[in-house]
C-alpha cells in the first residue's frame, strides 16, 4: 500500500485508462486521470500511458499524441527518473515521443491480434519487472495491429547488450525483431510493452500474471 498516486494519461481515443486504474486501485494505489490537454501532472509519483487509439491513431499510432500539450511535461517527468509505463498504444506513443528507441509497425500478417501470449521476462532492471525473475514466464493478453517492434541494427545491439529488452515473446506472434515485446530506457525507469498486464490481474478473468508487472511498477514510485 502506498500513499503515492499514479497518473494515467488520457488522450481522446484512449480506452484502457479505466482498466488500468481499477487494477491499481484494487492494489490500494491511488490513481488520477490526466487529460492530454493539461501540462500540470498533478504531483503524481508515476505515469502510465494506457492502451487505446490516441487521436484515432491517425497518421500512425502515437504520431499525433506526441504533440499533445501534456507530452512536454511527460518528457520532463520521465527524464527526471520517474517510472513511466506505456502499455500497447502507450508504448507506441513513447517511441513516437523518442522516450524509447525504435518503432512499432503493422503485424507481420497484417491482422489485428487479440490473444494470449506467453512471455519471458528478460531484464529485471526495468521499473516494471524489478520484482520479477529473469527467465520467468508470464501469460499476458496482447491486443494490437501495430505491435511489430523494429529498429536499426545498432539500436538492437545496444538494447540487447544494455539489458534493455524487458519482455520477449516465447512464440513471436507479430514479427517483432528478436521477439521483443517490451523494452526500457537505459536508466530503466521508462518502459514500453505491447502486452496488457491489466487484463491478467484477476483470477476471475483467468490470470494474475499481470500483477507481477504492476507490483514491480508500484514499488518504484518516487
Amino acid at each position: 500500500m502506498t500513499g503515492k498516486s499514479v497518473g494515467i494519461l488520457v488522450f481522446p481515443g484512449s480506452n484502457c485508462e479505466y482498466d488500468v486504474a481499477s487494477v491499481l486501485e484494487k492494489m490500494g494505489v491511488r490513481t488520477q486521470l490526466i487529460w492530454h490537454g493539461q501540462t500540470d501532472l498533478g504531483g503524481v509519483s508515476g505515469l502510465i500511458l494506457p492502451g487505446g487509439f490516441a487521436h484515432g491513431d491517425y497518421l500512425r499510432p502515437g504520431a499525433i499524441a506526441r504533440f499533445s500539450p501534456a507530452m512536454s511535461s511527460v518528457i520532463e517527468f520521465a527524464k527526471s527518473g520517474h517510472p513511466v509505463l506505456g502499455i500497447c498504444n502507450g508504448f507506441q506513443v513513447l517511441t513516437e515521443a523518442k522516450l524509447l528507441p525504435g518503432a512499432l509497425q503493422k503485424n507481420a500478417r497484417l491482422k489485428f491480434l487479440c490473444q494470449e501470449a506467453e512471455l519471458e521476462v528478460v531484464s529485471t532492471r526495468s521499473s516494471a519487472t524489478s520484482l520479477a525473475e529473469s527467465g520467468q514466464r508470464l501469460f499476458l493478453p496482447i491486443n494490437h495491429f501495430e505491435g511489430n517492434y523494429t529498429c536499426d541494427n545498432d539500436t538492437l545491439n545496444e538494447l540487447e547488450s544494455n539489458n534493455q529488452v524487458v519482455l520477449r515473446y516465447v512464440e513471436n506472434p507479430n514479427g517483432s525483431m528478436n521477439s521483443i515485446a517490451g523494452i526500457c530506457s537505459k536508466e530503466g525507469n521508462i518502459v514500453g510493452m505491447m502486452p496488457h498486464p491489466e487484463r491478467a490481474s484477476d483470477d476471475l478473468l483467468g490470470s494474475v500474471d499481470g500483477l507481477q508487472i504492476f507490483k514491480s511498477y508500484v514499488s518504484n514510485l518516487m
Binding site: D19, K111, S201, L205
Partner: peptide
C-alpha cells in the same frame, strides 16, 4: 472461429469472464 474473434478486442473493460 478463432481466426475471426482474435481480430476483435474481446477483453476491454476487464469484464470478459
Amino acid at each position: 472461429p478463432r481466426w475471426i474473434y482474435s481480430q476483435y478486442d474481446h477483453q476491454l473493460f476487464l469484464n470478459t469472464v
